[in-house]
């Protein structure tokens, strides 16, 4: 069955997070999902726009939404949690506020309907992947992992609302289905320092350090993420992290899409894990044929 979905990779997936893009593409290919890029997409403006310029913080995402609507898309996958958050928030605000929508329409010269279904990576996996993994899975993800959701995927909960705000579970569910043991930990939605990566690396070291250390303390062998900002802070900022917490921790950070690719037996090149700063030295166990389960009818208690 051929499935098609709109796709907004966002800028970082073309650059510092290109392995995320690669792993999503690999995943989509493996499950016959065609990712159709939003035509001539632009940057969503990220943190900078809503920090400095309210008009841009609406206009930039609005143009992306308009281009997707014009191309007749109904669903779009936005793997970057930051872009997902911006696009969802702008669509939500413009959807409920007609006068604001008119003002934005005037600037971007479009007529927004605000009716796109914007999917984050986990929703995409639930819709197109999870039910079809089955026999395609070759390796068992037999590791203890810490699922780290970050901020932008789950908050504000009343708008995004795809999982609960405190102690979300959906990424855990995906990892468990691959055979992983997910740790129960309190920092699932604590902030990594996000956009301060370059300008206040010290803060990122502190915040990301706390997260990495807590995951390691609780015995996680990998941190699973769904956001390029979280990934770059937890992976590429390891020197700042080590400086902040005063110890060396080599726990790798893996995108959820990469984790599925790995379980499918994809190569390093296909998953993009060779691009990480912290080497992903994880050996997965070969999945054995499932033993025939005979369900005996037991007497009800």
């Amino acid at each position: 069955m051929q499935k098609k979905i709109g796709y907004y990779p966002g800028c970082s997936l073309e650059g510092s997070a290109r392995e995320y893009n690669e792993s999503v593409q690999t995943l989509a290919k493996a499950f016959d999902v065609t990712l159709e890029q939003v035509p001539d997409w632009n940057c969503c403006g990220a943190t900078a726009a809503h920090n400095l310029n309210k008009v841009l913080s609406f206009a930039l995402p609005a143009r992306i939404l308009a281009n997707a609507e014009k191309a007749g898309m109904e669903n779009i996958l936005v793997p970057c949690a930051a872009c997902y958050n911006r696009l969802s928030m702008v669509q939500h605000e413009l959807g409920k506020n007609e006068s604001l929508r008119n003002e934005v329409n005037a600037i971007i010269e479009a007529d927004l309907k605000c009716n796109l279904k914007i999917l984050n990576i986990i929703q995409f996996i639930q819709m197109f992947i999870s039910d079809f993994v089955g026999d395609k899975q070759q390796l068992l993800f037999n590791k203890k992992v810490a699922c780290y959701y970050g901020c932008l995927l789950v908050r504000p909960n009343d708008v995004l609302g795809f999982d609960r705000a405190e102690d979300p579970q959906m990424m855990d569910e995906v990892m468990k289905s691959l055979g992983a043991d997910t740790i129960d930990w309190p920092f699932k939605t604590e902030c990594c320092g996000a956009g301060l990566s370059v300008s206040r690396t010290d803060i990122v070291g502190n915040l990301s350090g706390r997260i990495v250390k807590e995951a390691a303390d609780r015995g996680a062998e990998a941190i699973i993420v769904a956001c390029p900002m979280c990934h770059s802070n937890l992976d590429m900022r390891r020197p700042a992290i080590e400086k902040a917490i005063g110890e060396k921790i080599d726990i790798p950070v893996i995108y959820i899409s990469q984790a599925i690719d790995m379980a499918l037996g994809k190569t390093q090149k296909e998953t993009g894990i060779n691009r990480h700063f912290v080497p992903v030295n994880i050996e997965l166990k070969k999945k054995e044929a499932e033993p025939q389960v005979v369900i005996e009818k037991t007497e009800e208690k």
Binding site: S12, E14, C43, G45, T47, A48, L52, G195, S199, R200
Partner: peptide, 22 residues
């Protein structure tokens, strides 16, 4: 000021190309 400079540099980057070039 560095935080602000970074945000400004970010927006300027988009201004000329439409996308962020890191």
């Amino acid at each position: 000021k560095n935080i602000i400079r970074f945000h400004k540099a970010f927006l300027d980057s988009i201004k000329y190309t439409g996308r962020l070039h890191e």
